[in-house]
Design a protein around this nucleic acid. Structure first.
Lengths: 217, 217
DNA sequence: GTCAACATTCTTGTATACAAGAATAACATG
DNA sequence: CATGTTATTCTTGTATACAAGAATGTTGAC
């Protein structure tokens, strides 16, 4: 366990942004946050610096740091980038995946299926996440794996909602099976294309939700 | 221009790492660096935090921050990831690139050719960089573009050397032409594959250099 | 001479103090 | 009453002070 309170606060702040307690455009008041976490401004500032580097907040000199949630356009871009990243992982995995890893993927898929049978979107979400992490790992490229996980994490709050759409879980499950089949066949391009579409659909579904929400207001 | 000295120092530190003045494994002494830059420890620390987030240094609690140059394995992984990123940019660009962007690419290529004719690797390197940035931009995905630029930048010190290899510039030039041709044809897969190989070769060339250097010691 | 226990020094991590620019409020003027 | 100007307050950015763990040097026992 780390002793640095700055690291703890970084995670706390990320959490506040993800849960939406710190909404888009909101200023991160160093003093308030320091009081809230029971520390001085110093570790709070260090945490904010980190968030700024990873893109969660923007800093304006002498004015402070502001939460910067991606807008619809940037969000679509991020989903597209995610799709490409996953496709790359899958393509590499096709020629490198070990038998053991394949078994792991099958198990993960079975768990997804179980969650689907129970009609439990939250559980499905969790197992689905595991499945995708296994794909990243199967790429055999630790750097790529890290990058994929980073972006995956960043998109987490936006990916969650769309699983509750009617029929999406089942469709997602089918895609998973296709992916594993293509992996077993060692067909890199097919793995890549299937994965790409699999993720791209998430972006489109999200886009649907967004526009629907907007038309409500 | 920014007033924050922390930002300035971040760049200065990056520079020190890139130029190798701060070698691999070296500890970043906050006090020394503060004196060197004529500031207190505070902005130095903030700069170090940022470097840690972007992966250039690692932090060990109560022990300090250490320069962490990627080893051969990680470097190959990064080159491979770069190849995949560029391939993605190219694939997307194939269906989105504007006529204007195509013209820009042609111009950039002509400048590369000119540098090749002059036998000027440094100039070629510069124009080559521009060419690739145009590809990123042509992807029509700002997020992907940023990510590609980030990694490109990180690999800069390692990419430079291999251009001096006999015949590499000319070969690189041919690949550039193929890429543009495929773009004009709108053949996404061909763009992607050509770009991927184009970058992958850099990784391999670098690997060659590394092993040769090692066998010398 | 070697090794272990202890003391000292050094460095990081955090808190506080101070400087300076930005936001805001008060006020004067038309 | 509106508006431009000035004064005040507030917040960030930086420097310094202090606390605590790590590295190092010293001393004593064997």
């Amino acid at each position: 366990m780390t002793i640095r309170s700055a690291d703890r606060i970084t995670k706390e702040l990320e959490h506040l942004v993800f849960t939406g307690e710190l909404g888009d455009g909101e200023r991160l008041d160093e003093i308030k946050l320091a009081k809230r976490f029971g520390v001085s401004r110093t570790p709070v500032r260090e945490a904010i610096q980190k968030l700024a580097t990873s893109g969660l907040v923007t800093q304006e000199p002498r004015r402070g740091a502001f939460v910067r949630q991606p807008g619809p356009v940037e969000l679509m871009e991020m989903f597209e980038a995610m799709a490409e990243l996953e496709a790359s992982c899958g393509r590499l995995a096709a020629s490198r995946v070990s038998d053991d890893a394949l078994v792991q993927l099958q198990i993960a898929n079975d768990k997804c299926q179980a969650a689907l049978d129970q009609g439990d979107p939250d559980l499905y979400y969790q197992e689905n996440e595991h499945f995708h992490h296994l794909i990243y790992k199967a790429s055999g490229n630790g750097f790529l794996e890290q990058e994929a996980q980073k972006l995956h994490r960043r998109l987490k709050p936006f990916r969650r909602v769309q699983l509750h759409l009617r029929g999406r879980m089942k469709q997602s499950m089918c895609e998973h099976r296709d992916i594993v089949t293509a992996l077993i066949d060692g067909d890199g391009d097919r793995v890549a294309n299937t994965l790409r579409d699999h993720i791209a659909i998430q972006g489109e579904k999200f886009h649907h939700l967004m526009t629907n929400l907007k038309s409500d207001t």
